[in-house]
């Protein structure tokens, strides 16, 4: 079954090769896209409907009913912030709908702290050929970002 992955953030959609982290840029985590978020307080939303199987302040994974997992990673190297500046508005293990608020953060603060707020959105365990990027450029949280065949 094809699924559409929504942008978790409002900003500019970019390709993974433009992400300033070789592991994401090299598609080692998986294929997908990234969002360079607008530098304002915003709430990252679930990219697909499913279960919030993993929720950290700076990253989360939603798994669809048919078993596909999508990772949203808020910024690069943000694991080192130990959750500071991230407010969870959903609960791990909860069933979420696409577009449901998950984490509130401010990309401007992350950037001011010397880290990139660019946020990869990854189709876990997917073949790169199964992904069609839909959007390039301005994107609003909840808009379709890519298509997973």
């Amino acid at each position: 079954m094809d699924i559409y992955i929504s942008s978790p953030l409002t900003g500019t959609a970019i390709g993974l090769p433009e992400v300033p982290d070789p592991v994401f840029a090299g598609l080692m985590v998986g294929p997908g896209a990234a969002v360079d978020p607008d530098r304002k307080l915003q709430t990252a939303v679930a990219p697909i409907a499913g279960r919030l199987v993993k929720l950290k302040p700076h990253a989360f994974v939603v798994q669809s009913e048919d078993g596909r997992g999508v990772l949203v990673h808020l910024g690069i190297d943000t694991v080192n912030l130990d959750g500071e500046g991230f407010e969870l508005v959903a609960t791990e293990g909860e069933d979420v709908r696409a577009g449901q608020p998950v984490v509130t953060w401010n990309p401007a603060d992350v950037e001011a702290g010397g880290l990139s707020p660019v946020s990869p959105v990854i189709a876990l365990d997917a073949e790169a050929s199964a992904i069609d990027v839909i959007v390039d450029g301005n994107v609003v949280a909840g808009d379709e970002l890519f298509h997973w065949r």
Binding site: V29, G30, V53, V61, Q63, R68, G69, L71, L124, D125
Partner: peptide, 10 residues
């Protein structure tokens, strides 16, 4: 061999 499963192990 699964990113999803390994990451979900936490």
């Amino acid at each position: 061999k699964s990113m999803l499963q390994v990451m979900s192990l936490d």
